[in-house]
């Protein structure tokens, strides 16, 4: 098993983690799965770096691991607990329905990847995995009814785009990857700031309270 195969296997593992995230309704479970997914993504980048001898990819793998696998899940759980928010999450559909939705997303990703693989020279499995991550992320964005679930949904979409960059181009240039990670950090800080304000104003992180502006 060469590093290219292992890199692809890590991406498939990341899809499995996202598939499980789609139906999880507890904060700790969602954060743990996100951390596992981020570990697998950073491992995929590291294996790619080994296969191609790309020094900047090692830096991206390291930074991805520290930010996405360690800091974001840890701080998310810590801050939510510190403010006494409910760790029970809510969605518009039942977990079984969401699992079927995720399964459909993975199947659909397989079809889209066939088309994209024809237009580019990227490996099919890597393309299908990254598109599946993006679609599952979108599923979470439209199905969740709380700020935590929506935040994780966005993070899964971002992980999918990150994986797509790896599949299509072997990763974006280091400067762009650093810029994207910096923007993600600021996004996370704002997410936490808004969640804290929602908890203070509505004693809840449910987005049901954010429905005044219509029309």
């Amino acid at each position: 098993m060469g590093p290219v195969f292992l890199s692809g296997a890590c991406l498939v593992g990341a899809v499995l983690a996202a598939f499980l995230m789609a139906s999880r309704m507890r904060l700790a479970s969602l954060a743990s799965l996100y951390a596992i997914q981020a570990m697998l993504l950073s491992a995929a980048v590291a294996f790619y770096a080994v296969a191609h001898g790309d020094a900047s990819a090692y830096a991206v793998a390291g930074l991805t691991f520290v930010l996405k696998a360690l800091l974001i899940p840890y701080w998310f759980v810590r801050i939510v607990r510190a403010h006494g928010s409910s760790e029970r999450l809510v969605a518009y559909a039942r977990p079984t329905t969401l699992s079927f939705g995720a399964l459909f997303s993975v199947s659909f990703a397989g079809l889209i990847a066939q088309e994209l693989a024809r237009a580019s020279s990227a490996p099919y499995v890597a393309l299908a995995s990254s598109i599946a991550l993006i679609l599952i992320g979108f599923l979470m964005l439209v199905s969740r009814r709380d700020m935590i679930g929506l935040g994780f949904g966005f993070l899964v979409v971002e992980a999918g785009v990150f994986a797509l960059g790896l599949a299509l181009t072997g990763g974006m240039p280091l400067f762009v990857e650093l810029g994207a990670l910096f923007d993600l950090s600021i996004f996370f800080v704002l997410l936490v700031a808004f969640a804290r304000r929602a908890q203070r104003e509505h004693a809840s992180l449910a987005t049901d309270y954010l429905r005044e502006l219509i029309g």
């Binding site: 785009v161 181009t169 974006m172 304000r197 954010l210």
Partner: peptide, 25 residues
């Protein structure tokens, strides 16, 4: 309404910009 507006702005525009990143890629 301020929090709702900012929340929508953050999530929708960030998601849009991430799709734009796919275009860059």
């Amino acid at each position: 309404g301020s929090l709702e507006a900012a929340w929508k702005y953050l999530i929708l525009c960030s998601t849009g910009i991430v799709l734009g990143l796919m275009g860059v890629m």
